[in-house]
Design a protein around this nucleic acid. Structure first.
Length: 563
RNA sequence: GUGCCUGUAGCUCAGCUGGAUAGAGCAACGGACUUCUAAUCCGUAGGUCGGGGGUUCGAAUCCCUCCAGGCACGCCA
């Protein structure tokens, strides 16, 4: 039941305005006592050449209540609509109970393909907080788009190519310790990578040696290729441990190396269009007319560069997937790079460049530590997750769970806490990382929502002797009505999250729903009520649990049934 | 220097395609566990929405300007 549409239709009939226009003007009053839907009449004032207050009053006089809308009032230039609570409640709750975890899903996507590039860690380097942002935002967007009926291709654009591999090979040949590498691949590879940078300070020849090794790699020399593949395998194994913990997977791991043989074509395409210019021995696309610095396509030493790889990748993706949207979940510091290469695509005549979107997220700052891969100063994601899980375990001393359930439960709650802490804020706002805030278990946190859900399920486990057909008209408490109102807007909330590529929208929604639920939990009894009310409330709880679980799913968080 | 982003309660943030008294969470203070898990709930207090102009019936929201902070600006990605 689409009440927004019903209201718009009523207004449309009473005025001579188009239904779509009205639908866009309709809003939900912040204060629910004012109504469930409202039409601000201020904009109509210029059309009708009348005072808004008068317009609202006249419209109110022309529109009659029906089975869905019980009352219409004109207040201060607003035309306020009150929905018939009984039919509204029944319509919303029955739909949820029937559709279950598919409630909120849509078909607007029409099976069109959306590509989401995210995570993209560098081989032989630690998986850090920045990669976590990209990974979980990408994961959430994947589930959001999927829910709206899009076909999604998740691409992990691995950083598996470039001069750093020359450095790594050089470092390995000098100081590599096979056994240490087998035991702790990333840490050991990082150790020798850092050592390389230290030594290179004193001995610049090392840089040259590294370039030579990378050249060999590009030329397909067996020894260098073997090492490169080995590093890559080890790294992926480590990354997959984390992906498993996070419940994340990908459809493609085609990283930078995959495009190493696809860049010549980009260069010749650019040459055909006469877009390339020589500048200091490098080949560039001049973007001066668009107020941007030039985009370097071929370096002065003839080697390729990331912009070229990204262009090659975009073209490859268009050909392979014929995407509707091509989304890059990459940090804001790279915003200019994306603007530049999207522009180059446009200049190349790829009209689909407009479908490429950079979904940026702000840098995560650390209060004291200066973090950099080269110096070896890093916070490992694994440590963050472990710390979170451990704190949850400490908290669980009073749990009634069986011993063997504590570990897996703490794992889910702990990881959910970290994910939620990152997704509850706008992705473009800089975040200062603090353990305290990330692992805060109270208030607007992951554990709060987990707890809410577990309490809901607990009632459902205990309640018995329900009637077959709930009478939802018995749900008359303010908080019950508010919950139903909140439940009713899931689909439009998902739509908003998609239009903004912003998982936070879902996070805020599920927090608000959880708050309402907890308020309800404290003021309304269920199990001890008489059968009719008990039934209606139990079904309300069931609907809440369905929607909370759905939202957590959309954020990439697993629920626990008890804690 | 140029471009992009940010500035809302003591702290962390929502609200920003203009709309009805600016909302949460932490922290503070006061209450609620013999009754569905108190990781909860209820209440109190706390704001020149960075400053100043402008557009408008109406601005935290749009425009201009200034201030403060962050990021990015050719051969790393």
């Amino acid at each position: 039941m689409d009440y927004r549409k019903i209201v718009s239709e009523m207004i449309s009939k009473a005025s001579d305005l188009e239904i779509d226009k009205i639908e866009n003007m309709i809003e939900v009053p912040a204060n629910s006592e004012l109504g469930d839907y409202a039409l601000p009449c201020f904009k109509l004032a210029s059309i009708y050449r009348k005072a808004p207050v008068l317009i609202a009053q006249e419209l109110a006089g022309k529109i009659l209540p029906d089975s869905h809308i019980s009352n219409i009032q004109a207040v201060n230039g607003y035309l306020n609509f009150f929905v018939n609570k009984e039919s509204f409640s029944a319509s919303v709750l029955n739909e949820i109970l029937e559709k279950k975890d598919r409630y909120g899903d849509d078909t607007v996507g029409g099976e069109q393909t959306v590509i989401i590039e995210s995570s993209s860690p560098n081989i032989a380097k630690p998986f850090h907080i920045g990669h976590l942002c990209s990974t979980i935002i990408g994961q959430s967007l994947y589930r959001l788009y999927e829910s709206a009926g899009y076909k999604v291709v998740r691409i992990n654009h691995l950083g598996d190519w470039g001069t750093q591999f020359g450095k790594l090979i050089s470092a390995y040949k000098r100081w590599g310790d096979d056994q240490a590498i087998q035991e702790e691949p990333i840490k050991e590879l990082l150790r020798i990578y850092v050592k390389f940078h230290e030594e290179a300070e004193k001995n610049p020849e090392l840089e040259e040696e590294a370039r030579r090794y990378f050249k060999n790699l590009e030329d397909g020399s067996p020894e260098e290729t073997r090492l490169w593949q080995w590093f890559k395998d080890l790294s992926l194994k480590e990354f997959n441990k984390l992906y498993n913990r996070l419940g994340v997977s990908f459809d493609s791991y085609n990283g930078e190396s995959f495009y190493s043989d696809k860049m010549d074509e980009v260069v010749s395409l650019l040459e055909e269009k006469s877009l390339l210019k020589e500048s200091d021995q490098a080949k560039i696309v001049d973007l001066e007319p668009y107020n941007m610095p030039p985009c370097i396509i071929v370096k002065s030493d003839g080697a390729s560069i990331y912009a070229t790889r990204d262009i090659a990748a975009a073209i490859y993706r268009k050909r392979t997937y014929d995407f509707y949207k091509n989304i890059y979940v990459v940090g804001i510091p790279q915003a200019l790079h994306f603007q530049q290469f999207f522009k180059v695509l446009e200049l190349m005549g790829c009209e689909w460049s407009k479908d490429c979107v950079h979904v940026g997220f702000a840098h995560v700052r650390f209060p004291d530590k200066k973090l950099s891969t080269r110096s070896g100063n890093v916070i490992y994601l694994e440590d963050v997750l472990d710390e979170s899980v451990n704190r949850i375990k400490e908290y669980m001393t009073n749990t009634k769970l069986d011993e063997d359930m504590i570990e897996p439960t703490a794992e889910k709650i702990g990881i959910g806490a970290v994910i939620f802490a990152f997704l509850k804020r706008s992705r473009e706002k800089e975040m200062v990382f603090s353990w305290e805030e990330t692992l805060n278990l109270e208030g607007e946190s992951g554990p709060y929502i987990h707890y809410t859900y577990a309490r809901g399920l607990n009632i459902l486990r205990k309640v018995e002797g329900l009637e077959d057909r709930p009478d939802f008209s018995l749900l008359k408490e303010k908080v019950e009505i508010a919950i139903i109102q909140k439940l009713s807007v899931l689909q439009e909330t998902i739509a908003e999250a998609i239009s903004r590529n912003e998982p936070m929208v879902i996070a805020r929604y599920v927090i608000e729903l959880s708050k309402l639920f907890n308020s309800f939990y404290n003021s309304c009894k269920v199990i001890t009520e008489e059968i009719k009310l008990k039934t209606a409330r139990a079904k309300l709880i069931e609907a809440c649990c369905i929607v909370i679980k759905k939202c957590l799913y959309l954020l990439g968080i697993e629920t626990v049934d008890a804690m």
